[in-house]
Amino acid sequence: MILISCPNCGPRDETEFHYGGQAHVAYPDDPSALTDEEWGRYLFYRENPKGLFAERWVHSGGCRKWFNAVRDTATYRIAAVYRIGETRSVPSLASGETRPTRPAASDQSLPGGAK
């Protein structure tokens, strides 16, 4: 059981949340301009690192708000939690680089990858 700190409600059990997969996957600016390869990549390819992973969660059993977390997929330890749209430097993501996260179109349109 993972204890997840909702940015609005504080630490709650994993059972109150639903998972939304990789964070910061922006909807393409002009989908009709993409090649089949690029569209396929947008639809079906997500990062799958063993280690730190920026991902989305929704606090279904609480404030019902989506937010982002950086979690280690090997230890399940959560390294950071931040609100949708919040710019935040996340140390050493899967790609190995430090990059500022930015609000992406998909963050507003919400559960794109959520089942």
Partner: peptide, 13 residues
């Protein structure tokens, strides 16, 4: 379990 994981363990619920 719903989340990505390599831990060879999951949640009790």
């Amino acid at each position: 379990d719903s989340y990505n994981g390599y831990g060879q363990r999951g949640a009790f619920h």
